[in-house]
């Protein structure tokens, strides 16, 4: 879409191509993933941007922690303290075991900061990094998707991480025998006939918690990113055919409204993912 005018409109990507282009990952196979589940494909862009956001988050927190003063705190330190107190209050309210809270509260803080940073990759204009990537690789059809949480692999990976921490605490708090006992007797009582049903219910519960935990973040971010793409199409249609200024104005207005609303979604989804991490780990502490 760099040149306006009719010849550009001829070979400019159609709306569908533009969106499908922006939905394709830069992965290890070079082309879009064919079938839904394909473990041989690794989405390198999701990997890169999630690690990059993690490093940035850790660096910022480390810098603030290094220069912490008990006197008048700077703005950065005040902000980090606010987040710390919020996470600590939530952790104290949900996880009553002080000893495991030593690990779980920092985990919740990491989850909140990391997901907030990964989600906020959505605020960059849609075509900035992909065009930069195309310039770097020189391949005009280079694919890149910058929001790691708009990739199901990213979010399900994190929710499975939370599941493993839950399983660890289940075994640590209740002991392996105690947990096995609970697995087979939990919802409906300890009559031997009910063992299979109990176990089935427990498995369903764990799977449902993990899948909904990951899919919720994915659904919100994927839909949010797609709305940005649809809004970008408005601007693209104006650039391609110069049909009227209202399309350009539409792009700017709709884009800013959605971006402002998206700030709430980004923060809220990071908060919800953190709260549910705490709640699931808290459930691992209580006996049914």
């Amino acid at each position: 879409m760099s040149t306006a005018g009719h010849e550009a409109a001829a070979n400019a990507p159609t709306a569908g191509e533009y969106i499908v282009h922006h939905l394709t990952h830069f992965n290890s196979t070079g082309h879009a993933q064919k079938n839904i589940v394909d473990f041989s494909v690794i989405n390198l862009d999701t990997l890169f941007f999630s690690v990059l956001m993690g490093v940035i988050g850790l660096f910022v927190m480390w810098r603030v922690a290094k220069s912490v003063t008990s006197g008048v705190p700077g703005r950065m330190q005040a902000a980090v303290e606010i987040v710390l107190e919020m996470v600590n209050d939530q952790a104290k309210g949900i996880i009553h075991n002080a000893e495991s809270r030593k690990f779980v509260a920092p985990l919740a803080l990491t989850v909140f900061i990391w997901i907030f940073l990964m989600n906020s990759m959505d605020f960059l204009p849609l075509d900035v990094l992909p065009n930069l990537w195309q310039a770097i690789t020189g391949d005009h059809h280079a694919y890149l998707r910058v929001v790691p949480t708009a990739d199901l692999n990213g979010t399900l990976g994190m929710s499975m991480g939370v599941l493993f921490v839950c399983l660890y605490y289940n075994i640590k708090i209740k002991g392996f025998g105690g947990w096995m006992h609970e697995l087979f007797t939990a919802p409906f009582g300890s009559h031997p006939l009910l063992y299979p049903i109990n176990f089935l219910m427990q498995v369903i519960e764990f799977v449902a918690k993990t899948v909904s935990h990951g899919m919720r973040l994915f659904g919100n971010m994927y839909a949010g990113e797609l709305v940005f793409m649809l809004i970008a199409l408005m601007g693209a249609a104006w650039a391609g055919t110069a049909t009227g200024a209202f399309l350009w104005a539409g792009h700017v207005i709709a884009g800013s409204i959605w971006a402002i609303f998206h700030i709430l979604i980004v923060a809220l989804q990071a908060f919800i993912f953190m709260m549910l991490t705490l709640v699931y780990i808290g459930q691992a502490h209580e006996a049914h």
């Binding site: 909904s212 899919m215 919720r216 994915f218 659904g219 919100n220 994927y222 839909a223 797609l226 809220l268 989804q269 908060f271 919800i272 709260m275």
Partner: peptide
């Protein structure tokens, strides 16, 4: 928190529909 949870099923659906 509850608004986020209520929205979950809807937005998972929107994700799948998209």
């Amino acid at each position: 928190l509850l608004a986020g949870l209520i929205d979950a099923a809807f937005l998972i659906g929107v994700g799948i529909a998209m």
